[in-house]
Write a protein that binds this DNA or RNA. Structure first.
Lengths: 160, 160
DNA sequence: CAACTAATTTGCAAGTCATGCGAATTAGCA
DNA sequence: TGCTAATTCGCATGACTTGCAAATTAGTTG
């Protein structure tokens, strides 16, 4: 992660200005472990800076991604999520609550396809789908667990 | 993959009807190696069955996914793509042309996070990002290769 | 084989997520 | 302090997908 100070540097290096909006969004992003969506951040930002525009949030997130300060996470089912953690890590997605958590995977970076050897690999991403401990617990305690949808369908459904 | 015959069985097992539209979409899906979007399939379907509705294509694809006959692939940048291959495989995405190809990865299914051990894993997905051989070749031959966008940005850009 | 009924198909409206655009503002520099 | 290019903002627009209700049709029954 990047400190706010170096953020200023990063911005200037790109001939960009360090506006209050950008600082706020950057800060909120790093205080947040939940991989928020643009709307999530907009809600939080609005609380601290009434009048800030959703348009600006989108714009800033795109800029930060361009500058390598954050990553997009696009794991189906709805809005893009943003991850300030640009280090080597992967994700575990709960098919029940939709939570995404960062995880580490030994040897992931060196995985290679056994076929398609004529493909230059720049990046390897691993996504685990399953049930987080919180959901697993509440499930045992009683509730539903109805019609078994596929994980993907489940994700889709929780969109609403 | 599933034969058209068993498709009928699968449909009946779900109390569903085997309509010409469904048969066509299922067939096109399996003739197609390109992980098409709903619009792609709609275009192909329209050629063989003028008047078929895009709505029906979406609906059918969702049903097939529910029945486990195909998978959704949602790797950012635009529309959902569909994959008739529900076996154990992963994907390689070309950041240049957007092509997605199926690949196999030894040991992928047994990957586990080194942290987050309190997470029940149902599925492991690996995504490689890079440059396919075709793009790599044409790139060498001459063309651009301008401003280095992040892979994700690149994907976003090719959306349009 | 004709009738019947629930499942499907369709087209259009509506919804979600994200970006384009132009006018008003503002950060950073001289 | 002033200047100017960069940025913010909000509205319109666009891409993709689903909801809905009326018209059709697959599959079953007599």
């Amino acid at each position: 992660m990047q400190s706010p100070a170096s953020l200023a540097v990063a911005y200037r290096a790109n001939g960009r200005k360090l506006t209050p909006q950008r600082q706020l969004i950057f800060q909120l992003m790093h205080e947040n472990e939940t991989h928020p969506t643009a709307e999530d951040l907009f809600a939080q930002a609005s609380a601290q800076m009434p009048g800030i525009s959703l348009r600006t949030v989108y714009q800033t997130l795109n800029e930060l991604a361009e500058m390598g300060e954050l990553q997009f996470i696009e794991i189906g089912s709805g809005a893009t999520r943003f991850d300030p953690n640009v280090g080597d890590h992967h994700h575990a997605v709960c098919d029940s609550c939709g939570q995404i958590r960062d995880v580490h995977v030994r040897g992931a970076a060196t995985l290679r396809p056994t076929d398609s050897t004529d493909f230059v690999i720049n990046e390897v991403g691993v996504v685990f789908r399953g049930i987080c401990s919180a959901c697993e617990t509440s499930r045992r305690k009683g509730s539903s667990q109805r019609g078994a949808k596929s994980p993907v369908q489940q994700a889709k459904a929780s969109k609403k």
